Computed example of a mutant assay.
Amino acid sequence: MAFLVYIPLKMWQEIAKYGRKLVEHGLVESNFGNISIRAGNRMLITRTGAALDEITENNVVEVDIQDTSSLDIIASSEAVVHREIYRQTSALAIIHAHSAYSVVESLLAGPEGKITPVDSEGQYFLGEIPIVGGGIGSRELAGNLANALSRYRGAIVYSHGTFAIGRTLGDAYIITTQLEHSCKVKYLYDRAATGEKISKPNERSFDPRFYL
C-alpha cells in the first residue's frame, strides 16, 4: 500500500508566503515588520530592511537562539526580541506586524494597559490583549514581550505593533489578523458608543487617524 508523504515548503518560502499575505491585507507596510521560524536551537528570521512581499532565500538569515552571532548585524533589528520569545515560550513561529488599529488602540490604552475585545471572536481566541513597552529591538522589550507571550498568544508593543506566536506561521498569522480585527471593532464601537459620528470607511483604505 502506498502512502502519501507530506514534504513541507522550504522555510524561507513559508516566510515569503506569509510576508506577502501581511502586505496584501494591509497588516504591515512592505519594508516594516519581521517574521521568524524556529528550527531546533536556531531560527530563520527576515533580514533588516527586507520587503516582506518580496522575500527570497537571500532575505532570510539563520542565527542561533541561545547566543548572538556575527550574522545578527544583517538580521532584523528585532532579532533579540524573537530570540528571547523562543527562549521563554513554546513558540515555533513569530510574526511582528504594524497593524494600524492595533497601534491606535495601544496609544489609547497606555503603555502598560490591556485591551479587552468587545467582539465574540476576540473574547474567545484572545481573551485580553496585553500592551508592553520597550524600545525597538531592545532587551527591555524582549523581556517584556517574552513574559507576556508566555501567557498570551498575541501582544501589542505600545505605539509600535503586534507580536503573535504559534506552532506554525499559519497560527501566528491568524492571531495577527484577530488582534487587528478586535482592535478595529473596539475602536469603531467605542467611537459609536460616545455618539461620535463616524463616516463609513471605503473598504480597506480607511485610516483611523482621520477619526482621532
Rank of each mutant, 00 (worst) to 15 (best):
A164L: 04
S102Q: 05
S150K: 15
D64R: 13
L44Y: 15
P117M: 04
D67V: 13
H160V: 00
E57M: 13
T89A: 10
R42G: 08
V132Q: 00
M1S: 15
S69A: 10
A16L: 08
N58F: 10
P130T: 09
S182F: 06
R42Y: 13
E54A: 12
I175Q: 04
V61D: 06
I94M: 04
T56D: 08
K186F: 08
A100C: 10
K184P: 03
G110D: 03
A172L: 09
G122H: 05
G134E: 05
L44Q: 14
R153A: 10
L27Y: 12
S150E: 13
R151M: 08
Q123D: 10
Y211K: 11
L179I: 15
K21P: 11
A148L: 02
C183N: 11
Q88K: 15
T116V: 15
S77Q: 12
N34W: 07
S69P: 05
E57S: 14
R167Q: 13
I165M: 08
T48H: 06
I15S: 07
L188T: 00
R191E: 08
I129M: 08
Y158Q: 02
L9Y: 12
G127F: 07
S36Y: 00
S199G: 13
I95Y: 02
F32S: 12
A192L: 00
A164W: 01
A2T: 13
M43N: 06
S199L: 14
K10D: 13
I95F: 04
Y187R: 00
S99D: 06
S106G: 04
L179G: 02
P208M: 09
A155L: 09
I7L: 04
R83W: 05
L22N: 02
E84C: 03
Y101P: 13
